[in-house]
Design a protein around this nucleic acid. Structure first.
Lengths: 223, 223
DNA sequence: TATTATTATCAACTTTTTATCAACTTTTTT
DNA sequence: AAAAAAGTTGATAAAAAGTTGATAATAATA
C-alpha cells in the first residue's frame, strides 16, 4: 500500500484527493500548510502532491525543505501557468507538475506512473554490505556470510529502516510511525521485542551486534 | 550544476556520455585511462562513471585508489556480466553498476537518482568538529579522536545546546528550561553534576575542557 | 585575610529505560 | 482445518541514567 502526502491549503482539494486515493487503496496523509507538509515528510511517503501556493512561506522554500527530507517524487499542483517555469527550475529528476483544474483520473494515472518509476529506480543496486552481513533490499533477505537468515517481515522492515539510515538514531516512536503507520499508537515493548529477535538471529552467525542501543534515545545501525 | 567524471578507454563511449550529459546541463570531465581518472578525481565530481576494464592496471585497483580520494557514488560500466560479482564485492554504499550496452536514458535516470541520494545523505550527516572533539548530532555521539565516548541522554542534550550555540553563555536556569522544560523547577546542583560528568568524560581523552565556567553567569562551550 | 557566594566533587539513592521470557493472539502456510 | 510462523502483550529482571544532599574547593569581594 503506497503512501501519499497531499498538501494543499484548500480543504476541498485535500478532501477530494483523500477520498479519491483512499478509494484506490492508497494511504493518504494530508497537510494544510507548508509547515505541516514538511513535518509529515517524516512519515516516508512514496509521493508528495504539493500545492505550490500555500499561505505560509513562499512555495519554493517549502519545496526545498521537503527535498532535503525525502527522495520520493514530488508532483506540484499549481493554479497558475506562470508558475510552471519556476517549478521546472526547481524540480528534481523524478518530479512533475499538473495544472489546476485537473482531471482526477489524469492525476491518478500520473501518480501511479511516478511511484512505479521511482520504485524501479530505487530497486536497482539494492544490496549493501555491513561487515559480514549482506542486506538485499530487493530480495528482502539478510545473510551472514553464505548463510541466509530467516527474517520475518516486520523484522526486515526495521532492519531496512535502520540500515539504510545507518548511523542515525531512531527512537521507538519514530520506528513505530515509519513501520506501523503514523496513526497506530505504539507500545514500546513491541519494538523492544522485535529488536531482541533481530539481534538473536544475527548473533547466531555473526558476533557483531549491528543494532546498537542509544540509551534514552533509541536504536541505530552500526556497520 | 553537477560534475560527472566519465572514464572509459573507448573514445566513442566517452564522447557519447559527454554529449548526452552536457545536453542535460551537467559538467562533464572525461578520462581515457585509469591513471587519468585517478588524477581527475581531484576536481571533485558528484558522481563517477567508470569502465571497469581499462587497459592500464587491473580495474579494481583503480577503483580502490579512486575510493580513497572521493566519497561520491561510483557507477561502474561493464561489458561482462561475469564482472558483476567482483564489482558488487568492491562497491561501497552508494555505488551501482550498469551493463553495456545500456540505454542512455536509463543511465541518465540512475545518475540523477544517485546524485540526489548522495547529496541527501551528506546533507543529513550533521557533525561538527571542535579541535579533537567531534559531535554527531544525528548519530548522537561525541568522540575524541577515534574514541567514541559514552554520553547519556541528558548529558548529550547539554553538550548539544552548548556546542551548537558555541561561545554563548547559558546560566543554569536557562539550561534547565531548554532541556528539562519550562515548567520543571530546577535544582542548580543537578546541572553542576551533569557538567561534571561531561567534563570527566571529555577529559579522559582530551586535555581540553570545552565547557568553560563563567563565574556567576553560567557555562559556555569553547572550541 | 576573612567572608561570602558560587561551583565542584562524591557516593548513596531513586527513577527511567531497556532486555528477556513465556504466554497468548493473529496471520499465513500446508 | 490443522500446523506453523509471525506478531503482540505483560510481567519481571537488569542495566543505565538521573537526582540529591553533604562537603570541599574556588573565586570574588570587603
Amino acid at each position: 500500500m503506497y503512501k501519499i502526502l497531499a498538501a494543499d491549503d484548500e480543504k476541498d482539494v485535500v478532501s477530494l484527493l483523500k477520498d479519491y486515493f483512499e478509494m484506490n487503496d492508497y494511504l493518504v496523509i494530508t497537510a494544510c500548510s507548508g509547515a505541516e507538509a514538511i513535518e509529515k515528510t517524516a512519515l516516508g511517503p512514496d509521493i508528495i502532491l504539493l500545492d505550490v501556493n500555500m499561505p505560509d512561506g513562499d512555495g519554493l522554500s517549502v519545496c526545498r525543505k521537503i527535498r532535503g527530507n525525502v527522495s520520493c517524487p514530488i508532483l506540484f499542483l499549481t493554479a497558475r501557468i506562470e508558475d510552471c517555469d519556476k517549478i521546472a527550475g526547481f524540480a528534481a529528476g523524478g518530479d512533475d507538475y499538473i495544472i489546476k483544474p485537473f482531471s482526477i483520473d489524469e492525476l491518478g494515472a500520473r501518480v501511479s506512473a511516478h511511484i512505479r518509476r521511482d520504485h524501479r529506480i530505487k530497486a536497482q543496486a539494492n544490496v549493501r554490505y555491513f561487515g559480514n552481513v549482506t542486506i538485499d533490499y530487493t530480495g528482502k533477505t539478510v545473510s551472514v556470510g553464505e548463510e541466509i537468515l530467516d527474517i520475518a517481515k516486520k523484522d526486515f522492515q526495521i532492519i531496512e529502516l535502520l540500515s539504510v539510515n545507518c548511523g542515525q538514531v531512531f527512537d521507538k516512536e519514530r520506528i513505530y510511525e515509519r513501520i506501523w503507520g503514523y496513526d497506530s499508537q505504539g507500545d514500546s515493548s513491541v519494538i523492544a521485542e522485535h529488536i531482541r529477535r533481530i539481534r538473536a538471529r544475527l548473533a547466531k552467525f555473526d558476533e557483531e551486534y549491528h543494532i546498537e542501543t542509544v540509551w534514552g534515545m533509541g536504536y541505530k545501525w552500526k556497520r
